[in-house]
């Protein structure tokens, strides 16, 4: 499975990992990974270290995640993107919408 998720012991942080291609085919799994986490102040960490490719639908999915996080006053961080993915995020100026580590 390309999308895996993990909740920290205290339940405050959800880490979503997307491996391989991050595109429209991951939409359902990606949404399932966060939709039931609505605790106020919920942290969402998206681990992109294993993501090889990302298209515009993936960017759209990240925006949906951000909207979800905003609705429960939470936060989204994108972690460890490869050089190529970082370039896409910069080109689309998503680096101003998200914290990228």
């Amino acid at each position: 499975m390309a999308v895996t998720s993990e909740v920290s012991g205290d339940g405050k942080t959800v880490t979503i990992k997307v491996a391989g291609r991050f595109d429209f085919s991951e939409q359902k799994e990606f949404r399932e990974a966060y939709r039931n986490h609505t605790t106020p102040g919920q942290q969402f960490q998206v681990d992109l270290s294993g993501t090889e490719y990302m298209d515009s639908s993936a960017l759209g999915m990240l925006l949906l995640l951000k909207e979800h996080a905003d609705s429960c006053k939470g936060k989204v961080e994108l972690n460890k993107p490869s050089e190529a993915i970082r370039k896409i995020l910069e080109m689309t100026n998503f680096n101003r919408q998200f914290t990228i580590n």
Binding site: S56, L59, L63, M91, N93, R96
Partner: peptide
């Protein structure tokens, strides 16, 4: 001319 703007329809 490099991209300086966010895609349209987001903000």
């Amino acid at each position: 001319i490099v991209s300086r703007g966010l895609p349209l329809g987001i903000d």
